[in-house]
Simulated assay, not measured.
Amino acid sequence: MASSSSSFRQLAKYQVFLSFRGEDTRHNFTGHLLKALKDNGIAVFFDEERLEKGEELNPALLKAISASKISIVILSKDYASSKSCLTELAKIMECKRAMAQIVLPIFYHVDPSDVRKHGGSFKESFEEHVINKPDEVERWKAAFAEIGQLKGWHIVGHFSDR
């Protein structure tokens, strides 16, 4: 494990990879977090592009996940409605297991137990994905349950856009 951890550190291009549902958090919480990280000199991978519905993740994005020391996952109410977010999360959890990548979940206006148990708004999202991507859903659900078990920040309340 020590040799794989040290080779991982050498490959890390970014200190932090941010995973988030743009429609939910891009212009408030995530934007503030990104600014704070960059203001403190932290190299952050932040996907500026928006994927169209049904579009596959760019291989460069999956490579950026592997090239990061830490992934911060902002789990918002519509996070699981995005196939691209779920694909990112599955890759992030794979990197956590394979390369000891640090994963920090932020439960943004969602109950951590709903993440662990696929409840609340997440239940409906997974039910919709079963129709279109049945082979992927079990992998996504496993990653979702796994991140729901991690200690993280539970953000409740309101953030202004300013």
Rank of each mutant, 00 (worst) to 15 (best):
A2L: 00
S3C: 05
S6K: 05
Q10G: 06
Y14D: 15
Y14C: 15
F17M: 07
L18I: 10
R21Y: 12
R21M: 13
T25E: 08
T25R: 11
F29T: 09
L34H: 11
K35M: 04
L37D: 15
K38F: 12
K38E: 15
D39E: 15
I42L: 06
A43K: 01
F45Y: 09
N58C: 05
S66F: 11
A67E: 12
K69Y: 12
K69I: 06
I70S: 08
I70N: 03
I70V: 05
I70M: 04
I74T: 02
K77H: 06
K77M: 07
A80Q: 05
S81T: 04
S81V: 01
S84E: 09
S84P: 07
C85I: 04
T87F: 10
A90D: 07
M93S: 05
E94P: 03
C95N: 13
M99A: 15
M99E: 15
V103C: 14
L104Y: 12
F107C: 13
F107P: 14
H109Q: 09
H109G: 06
S113L: 09
H118I: 07
H118E: 15
G119A: 03
E124V: 01
F126I: 10
F126W: 13
E128C: 06
K133M: 08
P134H: 11
D135V: 12
W140N: 12
A142G: 10
A142H: 14
A143G: 02
Q149A: 09
K151T: 06
K151I: 02
V156W: 11
G157D: 01
H158Q: 03
H158C: 01
F159M: 03
F159V: 02
D161W: 03
R162K: 15
